[in-house]
Amino acid sequence: MTSTFIVSPMTALDIAEVLALENRLFPQDAWPESFFYDELAHTSAGDDPEATRRYWVARTAAGELAGYVGMMCVLPHADVQTLAVAPEAQGQGLGTRLLNLLIAAAREQGAEQVLLEVRADNPGAQALYLREGFHPIHTRARYYPDGQDALIMQKPLTDLDAPSSAADLRSPQS
């Protein structure tokens, strides 16, 4: 089954739902509520060249939170700060869509590469990143609070792999 997801910039009004999904998906490494407010303090609607953060939420047609993604962009690098998809929305291309939105926004801001860290014990997320052109460059031993390693992955941003614009990726898709 394919659902339509509506993607929009994250606001403070989204944080309670985002935090609930964060705790549900990442019980051992969930960000505290203050992290989300701090990150949003560095965002804009996309028109402020000084803004270093961009965050989006994806909702179902019924308004339920299906996922979220956020990035930090300090040129020449962009970094995936977070990416999450609710279990009931997984397998419908939402993770790919959110990641590609972030990549397109990083490219539009002039980033030369996107970096991320992913738990070494999360093969599903790693598979998504590999499919989208990321490759492992380093392992941070015992990075997470439970002692799990983090795999650092990188995607160079070249004209050869340019997706559509970030604006195109925000519009509803079936």
Rank of each mutant, 00 (worst) to 15 (best):
A45H: 07
A58D: 01
G46P: 15
T82D: 10
H77W: 11
E39A: 00
A45M: 09
E64T: 09
D79W: 07
M71G: 15
H77V: 07
A41Q: 12
A58H: 04
L40V: 12
V69E: 05
A62C: 00
S44D: 10
D38C: 06
A45W: 02
L75M: 14
Y68L: 09
V69A: 15
S44N: 13
H42T: 03
E50D: 15
L65C: 08
H77A: 03
P76C: 01
L65F: 05
D48K: 04
R53A: 13
A61C: 05
M71D: 09
A41T: 02
V74A: 10
A62S: 13
C73P: 06
V80E: 04
D38N: 14
E50Q: 15
C73L: 11
R59E: 05
T52P: 03
G46T: 14
A62T: 11
D47K: 10
A78C: 13
Y68C: 10
T52E: 11
A58Q: 00
A45E: 14
G63V: 08
D79G: 02
R59T: 08
T82G: 03
A41F: 03
Y68W: 10
V80Q: 08
A51G: 13
Q81H: 04
D48M: 07
R54M: 13
G63T: 07
D79P: 01
D48W: 04
D47G: 10
P49S: 15
V80I: 15
G67P: 14
A66R: 00
V74W: 00
T60V: 03
D38E: 13
Y55N: 00
V80L: 15
A58W: 07
A51F: 01
D38M: 13
A61Q: 12
E50L: 15
H77I: 04
P76Q: 08
C73F: 00
Y55Q: 03
V69W: 03
A58K: 01
V74K: 07
E39L: 08
D38K: 13
S44E: 10
A66K: 02
L75H: 13
E50F: 15
A51D: 09
G63I: 05
V57H: 11
